[in-house]
């Protein structure tokens, strides 16, 4: 028995090592999902505070670059605006009910400006932390856009910070279409280059050329349809050969992203509750044995 205690006394450091490694691995396994990231970033306000001060310094230094980007974007939008106005004048037809609904939805969009305070852009599962939270009206599943186009979707919110899953996260999947065509697919990040993603499930009979614009399809209620995502740089085959897989160069540079806007769509709740109601009614109909009329 004595030798046993001597053994423990002599190698006490090894037991300290085992204990602390166990703690480390518990952290590793428990917190390496998004919940953990939030605990270490958004919830850890002290660290977020330091990051905020640091980022405000950096964003000041980069103002010149951001300004150039904004001017460029502004010109593009003005051109687009002119084009759309002309198209609207030419159209002049009686709008269908869907169109009225769509315009109503776009008109009520309000934007919440935010700054990225923490940005991991080197891992497989990237995410951003922005300095706006529930206090400013940000709620989960709101869309986030930047000067270069779509950025990502709000995943979790704290009182003053929110965690955003950007397009450059392997778990992210965004419903997109090619501008001017109705074929849509899901946009996923390649996992290597921060500027490259691919759009899956485009049917083989679709005619897609290099340089065409990829935009949001609007099927998810997170983003309104028609927001710029990126441009097609190559057309390839999907792994099963059944459809096209488009290589897309993203409009947003995630390595230097600073200023973003959160899209606060008031109809998200309404659409979701409608969907839930429909599902409920279907379930009730199935339970009573009647097919829904």
């Amino acid at each position: 028995m004595n030798t046993f205690f001597d053994f423990i006394r002599k190698y006490n450091y090894f037991f300290v090592f085992l204990l602390l490694e166990a703690v480390s691995f518990t952290l590793l396994f428990n917190f390496n999902s998004y919940q953990g990231s939030v605990w270490f970033t958004a919830a850890n306000s002290a660290v977020a505070e330091v990051n905020g001060v640091y980022e405000s310094g950096v964003s000041f230094v980069r103002l010149r670059e951001v300004n150039k980007d904004l001017v460029h974007r502004n010109v593009l939008l003005q051109q687009q605006n002119d084009r759309l106005r002309k198209a609207l004048q030419e159209a002049g037809h009686h709008p269908s009910e869907t169109e009225v609904l769509l315009r109503e939805q776009l008109g009520t969009l309000s934007l919440i400006s935010a700054t990225v305070v923490s940005n991991s852009s080197e891992r497989a599962n990237n995410y951003l932390v922005i300095d706006k939270g529930t206090a400013e009206g940000v709620t989960p599943e709101m869309g986030v856009v930047g000067g270069g186009g779509v950025v990502g979707i709000v995943y979790l919110t704290g009182p003053h910070h929110s965690l955003v899953i950007p397009i450059t996260n392997r778990k992210s999947s965004l419903s997109c279409r090619v501008r001017g065509q109705s074929y849509f697919g899901s946009l996923q990040w390649e996992g290597k280059d921060l500027r490259l993603a691919h759009l899956d499930d485009i049917p083989r009979y679709a005619k897609v050329n290099k340089g065409e614009i990829v935009e949001t399809s609007g099927y998810s209620a997170v983003f309104p349809p028609g927001l710029f995502v990126g441009r097609v740089v190559g057309v390839g085959n999907s792994s099963d050969g059944q459809s096209y897989k488009l290589n897309v160069r993203l409009g947003t540079d995630f390595a230097t992203i600073r200023d973003v806007e959160v899209i606060a769509t008031p109809y998200k709740v309404e659409i979701d509750s409608l969907k839930a109601k429909a599902a409920e009614r279907d379930a009730a109909a199935a339970a009573s044995g009647n097919l829904p009329q």
Binding site: Y13, E21, V23, S24, L27, N30, F31, W39, F40, V50
Partner: peptide
């Protein structure tokens, strides 16, 4: 390092082994 660099557990496990 983990808390400030968003690598929960990775650096802690590594530096603990480093300490050994």
């Amino acid at each position: 390092i983990d808390a400030s660099c968003n690598t929960p557990g990775v650096a802690a496990a590594t530096t603990t082994a480093g300490g050994l």
